[in-house]
Nucleic acid binder design. Structure first.
Length: 445
RNA sequence: CGGGGCGUAGCGCAGCCUGGUAGCGCGUCUGUUUUGGGUACAGAAGGUCGUGAGUUCGAAUCUCGCCGCCCCGACCA
């Protein structure tokens, strides 16, 4: 993409309404525009990041054997009356009437609807196990939306639902989700810690929240200093292997890590003092096992091998996709702007032409641009007639992890400069070497 | 939903107390200039001062209502 032809409305000054870093930077970098309290338009740069995150979530769900579908944002009230949540949910649920006076709602979650889909088409234990998920916009009419996309009213969420014959099977689904989530966050360059949590209104016995450590987090967290060092890394996971999956879950949940909701002072104090940590975290996902709560209420039953009929065991599992954009920035920024991890960056590399209109600089930039496109990468070429300072400031603000600087001085000796946004370190090399190096970095992801 | 604050040009703000022709910086547009970290000069465009009512000869300014937004708490992917 050529910046002169892109739509990137960056702001030099910080909008007064934004208090925390991610919100400020998303506005300044032209990623979002607020339309109402807690409701945002996603401008091209923000939309790109959102889509990258969504893509990673999809890939890891499919890898775990889960099946994508898409349910509507608007739901009929009667499904929720069946489960009893129409009255239980309260004013957080946005209720709407259509022209015929029928009661509808903008879905805050989809347990009822997915259960309806399941019961319409599944009759036999032979169809199990089954895990369906979608990534769709949700609406929760928060009393007080804040922190930009981290606490919006409208938000994009991946929500998945497992249907299993037995509790044991459902717990395997639970574990599968935990491992797939760990992998999802790691690919984004985030450390998200599973913490035992309260079940809240969704109900159920087993639940973990995934927290990204950040000072601006809304939850207080207590954890063993060794927990953030746990990594899934390169290991291959067979998601059908129950023992292996359970083993990984055990590895990641044995050390103490809890939110204030479930914090246990005595257990915490059993950790050696130098390893006790208290901090704050941003919740970016949650997994639940809730048994037959919805299947019983809504008649989602299957025939069993011994001629019986039983309600299925279920769980639901969510990742806050739009919230992750904010959480990623909270975890990756400095005073100049955003620093995207390679896994989610909107463009792979920025090309800065220090002397637009200079024949040798222009042609070197064009050649770099073509080379990156041919290598399957997306460059953002700042070809505006701005001076160097403005171009650097824009690149720093929008946070592309790699920048190539092309100027008359370097070009005279056949060199360009490759700079890491994270470390600020620069290296001189030929254009070919720069393309090769950047391509190798992304190929290794 | 309790408490606090704000609404004046695209963005950031001053003016309001003490009513009298609506201003500044940035951005935008035109021209010149400059060119390795948000450049300089000259000119231009852009505002029913959130909204409705009231007081007044006269309201951005005073009074009341409404709407919107932000912050702190209680609640949540």
């Amino acid at each position: 993409m050529r910046l002169s032809r892109y739509f990137l409305p960056v702001l030099k000054e910080t909008p007064a309404d934004a208090q925390i870093a991610s919100h400020r930077l998303m506005l300044r970098a032209g990623m979002i525009k607020q339309q109402q309290a807690g409701i945002y338009s996603w401008l091209p740069l923000g939309f790109k990041v959102l889509k990258r995150i969504e893509q990673i979530v999809h890939e890891e769900q499919v890898r775990a054997g889960h099946i994508p579908l898409l349910m509507p944002t608007l739901q009929p009230a009667d499904l929720w009356q069946e489960s009893g949540r129409y009255d239980a949910y309260g004013p957080e649920m946005l209720r709407i009437k259509d022209r015929h006076g029928r009661d509808m709602l903008y879905g805050p979650t989809n347990e009822e609807m997915i259960t309806d889909i399941f019961r319409s088409h599944v009759e036999s234990y032979k169809s199990l196990p089954l895990t369906l998920y979608h990534i769709q916009w949700k609406f929760r009419d928060e009393v007080r939306p804040r922190f930009g996309v981290m606490r919006g009213r409208e938000f994009l969420m991946k929500d998945g639902y497992n249907f299993d014959l037995t509790k044991e099977d459902a717990l395997h689904a639970y574990n599968r989700h935990m491992v797939s989530y760990l992998r999802t966050y790691e690919r984004m360059g985030l450390t998200a810690i599973p913490m035992r949590a309260d079940s809240g209104p969704i109900g159920g016995d087993d639940t973990h929240e995934f927290l990204v450590l950040a000072e601006t987090g809304e939850s207080e967290v207590f954890y063993d200093a060794q927990v953030p060092d746990l990594k899934l890394g390169e290991r291959r996971v067979d998601y059908d292997n129950r023992d292996e999956v359970a083993g990984i879950c055990e590895e990641f949940t044995t050390l103490y890590a809890r939110t204030d909701e479930t914090h246990d002072e005595a257990l915490f104090n059993a950790i050696p003092e130098e390893r006790r940590r208290v901090g704050r975290g941003i919740e970016v996902g949650q997994i639940f096992y809730f048994g037959t709560k919805y299947s019983e209420a809504m008649g989602a039953t299957v025939n069993t091998p011994d001629q019986g009929r039983v309600p299925v065991h279920m769980g639901s599992h969510g990742i806050g996709v739009s919230r992750l954009v904010g959480a990623l920035i909270e975890a990756n920024h400095d005073d100049k702007g955003i620093i995207w991890p390679e896994g989610v960056t909107p463009f792979h590399v920025g090309i800065v032409n220090l002397k637009q209109g200079d024949v040798s600089c222009d042609s070197a930039c064009e050649a770099l641009y073509r080379a990156f496109v041919e290598a399957g990468l997306e460059p953002l070429y700042d070809d505006r007639a701005e001076r160097a300072g403005a171009k650097f400031a824009t690149m720093d603000l929008i946070g592309l992890p790699w920048r190539i600087t092309v100027g008359p001085r370097g070009i005279a000796s056949g060199k360009v400069e490759l700079t890491s946004r994270r470390t600020g370190e620069s290296e001189e090399m030929t254009s070919e070497e720069a393309v090769e190096k950047v391509a190798a970095i992304y190929a290794a992801l």
